[in-house]
């Protein structure tokens, strides 16, 4: 029973590493998740929730949803290997002076995470996208 438990966990760890080392993705993450249309849906869902959030909603007063959505889609598209070039204001520029707290950043991350799940992305796709978005944290908080 115990030996089985140890063996099962070891086998699972090895399997994950082996799959990780052998699979060579033929297409970009952007193409894999369904490109512009999927990103657009994800951010559409997330933004609706973000704008009505009692803690962080106020930051977006006066920001047209469509404008923010297009920017987030373009930026993420570029980060995950899509054929886009983000030419809007830099993240640091657009967040300076807002004094966004770490807690507020995490709330936003969870909306984006939730939207990715609701739209049907796999857990693995979600993590790979988060990997690219994560460093943005320090371009947005306490500025």
């Amino acid at each position: 029973m115990m030996a089985l438990f140890i063996r099962a966990i070891t086998a699972a760890l090895i399997a994950i590493f082996v799959i990780g080392c052998t699979s060579t993705p033929q297409q970009s993450l952007y193409e894999e998740i369904g490109g512009h249309q999927t990103l657009n849906t994800i951010y559409g869902v997330a933004i609706t929730r973000i704008y009505t959030d009692p803690v962080i909603g106020h930051y977006f007063k006066g920001v047209p949803k469509k404008h923010l959505r297009d920017r987030l889609v373009t930026q993420t598209c570029e980060l995950i290997g899509g054929p886009c070039e983000y030419d809007g204001k830099s993240m640091v520029e657009s967040h300076t002076g807002l004094g966004i707290k770490e807690r507020e950043f995490y709330i936003l991350v969870e909306y984006v995470q939730g939207a990715m799940r609701d739209v049907g992305l796999t857990y693995q796709q979600e993590n790979r996208i988060l990997n690219k978005l994560a460093p943005i944290k320090y371009e947005t908080i306490y500025l």
Binding site: I16, F17, G20, T122, Y123, Q124, Q125, N127, R128, N131
Partner: peptide
């Protein structure tokens, strides 16, 4: 923590 590695896991 490595997000998305290996194989999309963390």
């Amino acid at each position: 923590l490595w997000l998305g590695y290996p194989s999309g896991y963390n």
